[in-house]
Amino acid sequence: MTVKLELKNVTKIYGKHKVINDLSLTVEQGEFFVILGPSGTGKSTLLKMMVGIEQPTSGKIFIDGKDVTKLPPNKRNLAMVFQNYALYPNMNVFNNIAFPLRMHHRTNISQRVREVAEKLNISDILGKRVNQISGGQQQRVALARAMVRKPAMFLLDEPLSNLDARVRFSARAELKRIQQELEQTFVFVTHDQKEAEALGDRVAVLNKGEFQQIAPYKELYENPANPWVGDFVGDFPMNLVDGKGFRPEWASVGSGDYSMVVESMESIGDVSFIFGSDSNGEHIVLRAPEKYPIGTTVKYTVNRFKDFGNQP
């Protein structure tokens, strides 16, 4: 695979606030690359530098091996979908999708718009104003506008976060389908782990302007690079005992050398989890085959550990 996008030692400082700290990164051709991180960690800032709306304070950005650090967005041939879609409110759906083509002086505009609309199932709303369509439709229009001029790469900033839960699920599946069909490079920003898990070939975990780990989601879950990643990734924070981490399903409850006092219980589907603390006051989550009354002491065995070594 060839390298599509490369960031070299990129730093971004707003005033005195260092938002992105010396990041380097390569995204490969055709990859669905997810950037995952809590709110305010600089995800959007990173994307804006890739697309050219912001310039890095220092460092370089390469696309297809070419240094684009100083190029304005209209010279980079990238497409971006913003968090709130940023549809042009004064234009109808057709004109929204046609806008990038017009800006690039393409011909056969109408035909191309219809083609893309067909692909995204929005042919029947082309004449509508953008404030007359649903959130899910807006998301497709934004995507159609991004796709229409066949950009070198797609950058998406939490494009699913404004959708309600049910639509979000199908939109996510659709996005993955489109990406596979186009065989294009996607960089996708989210703070939702489920999205990262479902979509990403690789996931970069960002915190406080630094990458904590870049790996497929499964690897993040099973083999977090540091306790912070272990804590952040997964439905529950990774349990920590003696400086070593383990996931709930890596332990068996009933007997063993470890114990904790049950504080609460929760069932997700047909699996139950028990929450408690051990004698050191560490919070522990375990998968439990049966119910345990609150206040009882539970013994368990850990079958597998993730050793963080001497990391903090």
Binding site: K48, V51, G52, I53, P72, P73, N74, L78, A79, M80, F82, Q83, N84, A86, Y88, P89, F99, P100, M103, H104, R145, R149
Partner: peptide, 10 residues
């Protein structure tokens, strides 16, 4: 973001 979007759209 409308304006940024316009710049990205070329």
């Amino acid at each position: 973001q409308i304006e940024l979007q316009a710049r990205v759209d070329g």
